[in-house]
Amino acid sequence: MIGSVLRRLIGILPLVVLLALVTFAMLKLAPGGPFDAERSIPPEIARQLEAKFHLDEPFLTQFWAYLSGLADGSLPSMKRPGLTVGELIRTSFPVSLTLGLLAMAFALLTGVLAGIIGALRQNTIWDYGTMSLALIGISVPNFVLGPVLVLIFALGLGWFPPARWEGLSTMVLPAITLGAAYAAYIARLTRAGMLEVIRSDFVRTAHAKGLSERQVVMRHAMKGGLLPVVTFLGPAMARIITGTVVIEKIFQVPGLGYYFVQSALDRDYSMVLGVVTFYAAILMVMNLLVDIAYTYLDPRVELT
């Protein structure tokens, strides 16, 4: 087990480098450079800037310079003097992480609960109610849901502040907005998974033992029913991370996603490269954690 985890961790490294290379190539191949927009820059200064950011060197040398800058976080921003990639991640990633984890917690809690209710009370008003709500949750884009929630709960009822990021009460609306679609998706997955398991032979065996419905569900059905949800957690992480980009824009949350879009629009290549690479590494580690969780839930599966 420990050996497999180590092997997988080591395997992540070349993938992250590869992804960084692809991103870098994309940036380099795109017509126009980072300083093209500022036409007022005299050629002399432009040349100095290019030298500072290794833009005048061969492709692989440049890439190596960026990569080593990424490794220790010292890669400087092209557009904001004094800011490095490491600095940006240190200050704004915790915000995005908090937002993402809160959204995930909300999604898992409500989604799993709604899914189990839907499965155990199949074809009742409870089932139809939760599943209709789930379909609405999937169908309403979060950038529609966000403003609507703000309109109702912040501007209308005044329960929560409409924007900013200064304490728990400001985190509620962003987290719900980000998590809603995943809650809905998880609810559907849980319901489908539980329904399949509930019909299986071993659940019948458990009933034949005289266990109560609660014991049957908790001990015998739950693990199997939640496996599809665990499989979904990997892609969900990826989408929640990209989702923070939108939420941070709506609620003016100073997270990494917000700065990432700004950097992309500003053509701040070093920042873009830094954030993409960082997120890729985070995601791959998360996926590894999900796989480990899976082997714990299903003893038949081994980590490869």
Binding site: D201, F202, T205, A208, K209, L211, R219, G224, D298, P299
Partner: peptide, 24 residues
């Protein structure tokens, strides 16, 4: 009825491959 199941009345099911909980 639950207090009878598995106690006073027990059942052996047909398909041994699927009748045991794989996660326990």
């Amino acid at each position: 009825l639950r207090s009878y199941r598995g106690n006073r009345i027990a059942m052996i099911f047909q398909d041994p491959m699927t009748s045991l909980t794989p996660y326990m």
